[in-house]
Design a protein around this nucleic acid. Structure first.
Lengths: 116, 116
DNA sequence: GAAATATTTAACAAATCACTTAAATATCTC
DNA sequence: GAGATATTTAAGTGATTTGTTAAATATTTC
């Protein structure tokens, strides 16, 4: 629980950058692919992309497999699932709380119409 | 879709900080509450908390309602839902891709029992 | 209207981030 | 082994982040 927090921070800050999100999107289209191909559409040098990949790898959002001089990158859904679970937990928590509050409001003023 | 990217960046970078996540957690326990009460367990000055609240507000993860000199803060599930949807999309995409790959592997090694 | 309270804004410093170019490392091919 | 290719690491820079203390802004209370 305690250490999970650092994991979450690394995942969310990895996802906070649009280039890194595009890399993940691109991976979902291309499947496993090498760094140069992955980097192709970005107007940015290769070292910059390399850095982004390192961040994604450290957040365990991607996996890297070496095949000779090529690095084959693939998506790792586990990492995203982890973040997704944190989010889902709070969304359902809050939604539950708000639904309950809605019920209370309805009981208190039953003539009130829906205002969502 | 294009402009959504900035929104996602602001949400994910808001969630990347452990203090801000704790603020959201605390809000889910306390419901709507004032800044000083929200800030209470954090070993950090009030201006620092105020900044964090600003970041959360700009990401539309919280809402602020003023009541005299007090600011009442509450969670806004919409923001989290937005991030949650982005994540869910890619998780299911990737999972789908991997399930398909799984099928291929099963067909290639038929001694493994297929399970539905 | 002066003092107390709730909160934010300003100004600043240290740390981190996202790039760049140049150099290094590892591998492949001849 | 020399040269080409794939990728990373190093070094540096400007922008952003996260905290601090001090001051400002509203609002309440007496």
């Amino acid at each position: 629980m305690v250490n999970n927090s650092r994991r979450l921070s690394s995942i969310f800050s990895a996802l906070a950058d649009p280039t890194r999100r595009k890399i993940l999107e691109r991976l979902s289209k291309l499947g496993q692919c090498r760094v140069t191909l992955l980097a192709q559409p970005f107007r940015m040098t290769l070292p910059a992309i390399s850095r982004h990949l390192k961040v994604l790898e450290e957040a365990r959002l991607i996996r890297r497999e070496k095949d000779g001089r090529e690095h084959l990158i693939s998506a790792n859904p586990e990492g995203l699932k982890h973040a997704g679970e944190w989010i889902t937990h709070y969304v359902t928590y809050w939604e539950g709380r708000f639904d309950a509050m809605d019920e209370i409001l309805k009981l208190q003023s039953p003539q009130r119409k829906k205002s969502s």
